[in-house]
Design a protein around this nucleic acid. Sequence first.
DNA 1: TAAGCGTGGTA
DNA 2: TTACCAAGCTT
Length: 349
Amino acid sequence: MNHGELATSLLAWYDKSAREMPWRVGPAQRKAGIKPDPYRIWLSEVMLQQTTVAAVKKYFERFTSLWPTVNDLAAAPDDQVMGEWAGLGYYARARNLLKCARVVATDHGGIFPQDRKTLLSLPGIGPYTAASVASIAFDLPETVVDGNVERVMSRLHNVHDPLPLSKPQLTDLATRTTPKKRAGDYAQAIMDLGATICTPKSPACGICPWFAPCIARTKGTAAELPKKVAKPVKPTRKGFAYIARTPSKAWILERRPEKGLLGGMLGWPGSQWATEAQHEPPFDADWTELGEIKHTFTHFHLFLRVMVASDIQNISESHITLGANEFKSSDLPTVMRKVFDIAQPNFTD
DNA sequence: TAAGCGTGGTA
DNA sequence: TTACCAAGCTT
């Protein structure tokens, strides 16, 4: 089966089984002349970076409700955007999302550039997202290469070289299969295929539109591809988190530095996170230990002992105080929300 | 260039 | 319970 036939058979499958998503313009709608909104495509693609469709849906609805256009988002306050992103993870995405929105609003008159190279120059847009916006939003024949495409290509061509070493080869194979027409539908089709049929474990080869041409299926190696370089074991770190309020019942928090872990997010004052936990309170108080939370980040496990105190007056300038009307635990990154959930019963009024 | 960067679902 | 995994980008 040649590349043209591969694309044709995949598009035929997509025409009848495309999944519905809040940001998606389906194949029937496209044929009726409906074009996607580039802002919504870009926003969804940034949210979908390393994140499941199920997790993204609520955030996408919330963001587009609050900010229907890129100009609206560009005008939003940083703190509000970070708070709305809380829980979705990879917070550099939110910071770059705002930067990108402001570049598009200011330098491009609120109109997204269409070509892949200009898109690639924008904050938070890398090779995958540039190709996905160009193809899905503008129907340009660019090739998306995400984890799904890597997996599908490695199986279709029975590539046993491990990722990420094999990525250039898989990218080349994907590029040769991308059709000049209906590139947007094709990009979504191949990712749908990876997400629903050519899954990491137990692929459903029996109902795959590429059953016949798939070499790994023929050889019986589909489920073991793609090979990946083994990842190192995650180390464990420990620390303390400190929750307290002022006499007027305002919560005492801090804004984390822009760069690094949970950059730009709200958090509770805490100790260093190290091999052994060290009690390093942010201010003198009668601290009580309430319990411990466990949280796993991309590259380490964390145990935090939750300490509480009341009626704190000696606040430093590095702290942020938020009254009951201003503070929402949903503005916190998940690890900090876990800490709050332990402490909250101790603060009844 | 390889490491740093979240979270929730799943087996 | 742990390890793996998901529509990656930045430095």
